[in-house]
Structure formats: C-alpha cells, structure tokens
Amino acid sequence: MSTQPEESSSTPSSNSSFNTASAPRSQPSNNNNRNSSRRNYLFVHRLIVAILLLFVTVSVVNFIAWRTLNPIPPIFQVNSFHISSTTPFNSSTLNHTYYYRVVFAITNPNKKLKLFLDRFEVFVFHGKTKVSSQRMTLMPPDLSVYYPEKNSPRDFPVRGRMLMISNFLPNNKNEVINFDVKMSFRIRFLAWNWLPKRESMRVHCSHLSVKLLSAKGKGDLIGGREQCSVL
C-alpha cells in the first residue's frame, strides 16, 4: 500500500519536467519573426528614402538645366491676312459667307532646343468684338508642329470663318479696317532629345490693316509683315 503514493507523486514531476523542457523552444521562433519584421521595415524605409532622393536629384538637375538653357519663346510674325467672301461686300444678298486666312511666320530662336507646338486656338477681333467663329482649320492639321534648332522662319497658315457685322463692311471701294489676331497654344521645349519642358503661351498680333475691296468681296493685309507679341 505504500507503493501507490510513490507512483502518483512521480507523475506530476515528469509532466513538469516535460513542460519546462518544451517552453524555451518557442523563443527562437519569436526572435525570427521580430528580425524578419525589422528587415522588412528597414527595406521599405530605405526604398522610400531612395525614391525621395531620386526625385529631389532629378528636380534639381532639371531646374539647373533649364536655368542654364534659358529657353526663348518662338518669334511670330503675320506674313499675310486675307479676307474673302462668296459675294461682294456691298451685295444685298442675305446669305453672306466670309472667310479669313492668316499666314504666320514662326521662328525658333534657340540654338540648342527643339520646339513642338500644338493645341492651337486662333481668334480674330475687330476692336473688342470677336468676328471669327470657334471652328478653324490648321494647315497642317492640328498636330504637333516641329521646329528644329535655330531655323529660318516657317509659314503656318490658319483658315476660318468670319462673322462679319454690317458696320464692318466698307462704304467705299478701298476702305481699310484694323483687325487683331489672338492665338493660344501649347509649346514643348526639348533639350538633348530627352529633357522636355511644357508651357502654355499666347500670341497677340494687333493693328493688322486690311484693305477691303467691296466690288470683289475680298481684302488683303497692307503694310507688309507685322510683328506679334508673345505673352
């Protein structure tokens, strides 16, 4: 009868020794998880820092490069301004259709920069009144117009419809009327074939004197080529 208590007392001791032996095995796995999380955190942190440094470096290089290049806007001139009608200006016909055709001469003054122009909008004014319709035709069409470095003037024709008002029509055969032409566009400067810079610009060509011939239903620019201001 004295042997039974001894057997029962030996069982808890064996269980406790098993528990104490197995407990330390979970500590290495916890340490591995902590180390893995720390490595992931350091990797993400270094990646973010590298991206920020790259962005700052590119921005600084871009700023210094364009400050050094100092891009100059293109030079605009009006070579010709022509107005035509399907009927004479002094005709009593109600269905008058008037058209304008402006030929710009565009020059790239930059020695090391290429120019690409697109998204054109052209409007014709008489005083403060707009006398051109919204729709116009570019020749060439509304695509990017390329100008190489330091090139000679290139013609850029624009054609559209005019909304003529009765008080603009000539009373005499050779009446001169002044028009203003305003154009907006987007320009892209390109350096070394890989570094671009985009800007939006406006051009104002003022006091374009056009002699209207009432009998022939047409008018042409007088006084030769006119310089435009780039805003």
Rank of each mutant, 00 (worst) to 15 (best):
Q4C: 08
E6R: 15
E6G: 00
S10L: 11
S14R: 15
S16R: 13
F18G: 01
F18N: 07
N19R: 09
A21Q: 14
A21W: 13
S22Q: 09
A23G: 00
A23L: 12
R25N: 09
Q27F: 09
P28G: 06
P28L: 11
S29K: 13
N32K: 15
R34V: 08
N35L: 12
S37V: 02
R39F: 01
Y41L: 12
F43C: 07
R46L: 13
R46H: 07
V49K: 13
F55G: 01
V56W: 08
T57E: 02
V58L: 15
V61P: 00
V61G: 01
N62D: 15
I64M: 13
W66N: 11
R67K: 11
N70C: 03
N70T: 12
I72H: 12
P73W: 05
I75H: 08
I75F: 03
Q77Y: 01
V78G: 01
N79G: 06
S80K: 10
F81H: 08
S84Q: 10
S85R: 07
T86I: 13
F89W: 08
L94M: 05
L94I: 08
N95R: 11
N95T: 08
H96L: 07
Y98A: 06
Y99C: 00
Y100A: 06
Y100R: 07
R101M: 10
R101N: 15
R101A: 10
F104D: 02
F104C: 01
F104V: 06
A105I: 00
N110V: 03
K112D: 14
L113R: 13
L113V: 11
L113T: 07
L115F: 09
F116D: 09
F116V: 01
F116Q: 14
R119L: 08
R119W: 05
F120R: 05
F120N: 10
F123R: 15
V124E: 02
F125C: 01
H126C: 04
K128A: 09
K128V: 07
T129K: 14
K130Q: 15
S132Y: 03
S133D: 11
Q134E: 13
Q134C: 03
R135F: 12
R135Y: 10
L138I: 02
L138P: 02
M139I: 14
P140K: 12
P141Q: 13
L143K: 12
S144T: 14
V145D: 02
V145C: 04
Y146F: 15
P148Y: 01
K150N: 14
K150I: 01
N151D: 11
P153V: 05
R154I: 04
F156A: 09
P157G: 04
P157V: 07
R159K: 14
G160N: 05
M162S: 07
M162R: 06
I165S: 11
I165W: 04
S166K: 14
S166D: 13
F168E: 11
N171D: 05
N172Y: 01
K173A: 04
N178A: 14
F179S: 05
M183G: 01
S184F: 02
R186I: 04
I187D: 06
N193E: 15
W194F: 09
L195W: 14
S200Q: 11
M201C: 03
H204F: 05
S206R: 15
L208N: 11
S209M: 08
V210T: 10
K211G: 00
L212G: 01
L213G: 00
S214D: 06
A215V: 06
K216T: 10
K218T: 08
G219A: 09
G224C: 03
R225Q: 12
L231Y: 12
